[in-house]
Computed example of a mutant assay.
Amino acid sequence: MPRAWSRRSVLVALGVASATALTGCGVRLEDHPGSLPFAPERKPAPDERTLLAALADTRSLEQAAAAAGAAAGPWPARLAPAHHQQAAVLEQVLRQAGVPVPAAAPTTGGPSGTGSPTTSTTAAGQARAGLAAQELVAVQTPALITLAGVGAEHVALLAALAAHHGAAATLLGGSAQWPEPSAPTGSPAARLLAATRSAAYGFEVAQAQGDHATAALAAVTLARLRHRETELVTLAGDAATPPALGYQLPFPVTTPTSARRLARGLVAGLLSAKAAELRGAAGNEQALTGLVRWLAETAVLGTRWGSPLPAFPGLSAP
Results as ranks from 00 to 15, higher is better:
L94T: 11
A71K: 06
A88N: 08
A53Q: 08
P102M: 09
D57H: 14
L52G: 02
G73Y: 05
S116D: 10
R49G: 11
P46D: 08
L61S: 09
A45I: 04
G73I: 06
R49Q: 11
A82D: 06
R95K: 08
G113Y: 03
P74G: 14
A45Y: 00
R78G: 00
A64K: 10
Q92E: 11
R78N: 01
R95I: 02
G110K: 12
G110T: 13
A104Y: 01
A66D: 02
A77K: 10
A71C: 09
T108G: 15
P102S: 09
E91N: 02
A70F: 08
G98H: 04
V93I: 14
A56Q: 05
Q85Y: 07
A103K: 13
A88V: 07
P111V: 15
A64F: 06
L61E: 07
P46L: 08
A72Y: 03
Q92C: 10
Q85V: 12
Q63C: 13
P117V: 10
T108A: 15
V93T: 14
S112M: 14
A77H: 04
E91T: 07
Q85R: 15
V93P: 02
R78W: 02
P81M: 11
G98C: 06
P106I: 15
A104H: 02
P74R: 12
P81E: 01
L52C: 04
A88Y: 05
H83S: 08
A66I: 04
P76T: 12
A77Q: 10
A65C: 03
Q63R: 15
A80K: 00
G109D: 11
L90D: 01
L79Q: 01
T108L: 15
A68V: 02
A80N: 00
A56P: 00
H84M: 08
A87C: 09
P102W: 07
E91V: 09
A80Q: 00
T50Q: 04
T58M: 12
T114S: 15
P111W: 15
A66T: 03
A70H: 06
V93C: 14
S60G: 12
A87D: 04
P76V: 12
V93E: 14
L79G: 05
W75S: 01
A104P: 03
